[in-house]
């Protein structure tokens, strides 16, 4: 079975979803700041071999509806929780990527009934790098390690979202204090870090795992920030290992 487009209306906004329906539980992928589910489709494709895999576009990004003003992080988290309820998925595993990690952590903390487990791939933002300039510098240092094929996807994403929404998302990622919320996550969580990720330092990835009551860290040697795009099979294998272990 191949990827299907399935949209839902949550509140009064369209939420675009891409699904590959495998036999197992639902795994819902949430993209990072300014981008969309485009970069996550290869992962959904692989995850869909075993799981009911989804990638959604947050409101304002990709093919989803555009709110009048960019949504703040808790509002995005509320949409994800409402979307999960709307689709009737039975306590999915939420897989966040980059800023998407901050969104799914907010979901897990403020809507504890929504997710059964979390996967945090490249969790941002390291509190010690919490400034626009540092973030920009980290982004630039990380860029050479990313797949060149991802660049046109990013450009299309930024065009879809528009500069105001993109900047608002980066601003939200910096304002959010994810480190205060991690200890309140009550479900098992897998943290994934690319060994060459310049946006998520090793010490921060360790600290994220340490703060999570049921955290586990997996470092993927040689991969950049976007582990999910660079090596979706390896990420999917780690997710499968994690989900079989926590048996949700």
């Amino acid at each position: 079975m191949s990827l299907q487009r399935q949209d839902h209306v949550v509140g009064d906004l369209k939420v675009a979803g891409h699904r590959r329906r495998g036999p197992g539980q639902a795994v819902v992928c949430v993209h990072g700041a300014g981008v969309s589910s485009r970069e996550l489709l290869p992962l959904v494709d692989v995850l869909g071999e075993r799981y009911d895999a989804w990638a959604i576009d947050l409101p304002g990004f990709g093919a989803s509806g555009k709110p009048d003003r960019p949504l703040v992080l808790p509002a995005l988290a509320d949409v994800v929780a409402a979307w999960a309820e709307r689709t009737g998925l039975e306590r999915p595993c939420l897989l966040g990527v980059s800023y998407g990690c901050q969104v799914v952590v907010d979901v897990a903390v403020r809507h504890p009934e929504t997710a059964a487990a979390l996967v945090l791939a490249g969790p941002t933002v390291d509190p010690r790098g919490r400034s626009p300039w540092r973030l920009a510098a980290q982004w630039l240092r990380n860029a050479p390690g990313e797949s060149p094929r991802m660049m046109p996807l990013n450009v299309a994403d930024y065009r879809d979202a528009g500069p105001r929404t993109v900047l608002a998302a980066f601003g939200e990622s910096i304002r959010d204090r994810v480190e205060d919320k991690l200890p309140l996550v009550t479900v098992p969580a897998l943290v994934i870090r690319g060994g060459k990720d310049r946006m998520v330092p090793q010490a921060w990835a360790e600290e994220v795992t340490r703060l999570l009551p049921y955290g586990r860290l997996e470092v993927m040697d040689g991969l950049p920030h976007m582990t999910v795009y660079r090596d979706p099979r390896r990420v999917a294998a780690a997710v499968a290992g994690f989900l079989s272990e926590v048996a949700v």
């Binding site: 090793q202 360790e206 795992t209 340490r210 955290g215 586990r216 860290l217 470092v219 040697d221 040689g222």
Partner: peptide, 13 residues
């Protein structure tokens, strides 16, 4: 390790 088991300063390649 139950949470994190990591190489420290090792270039695994």
């Amino acid at each position: 390790a139950t949470k994190l088991g990591v190489f420290t300063g090792v270039d695994t390649r």
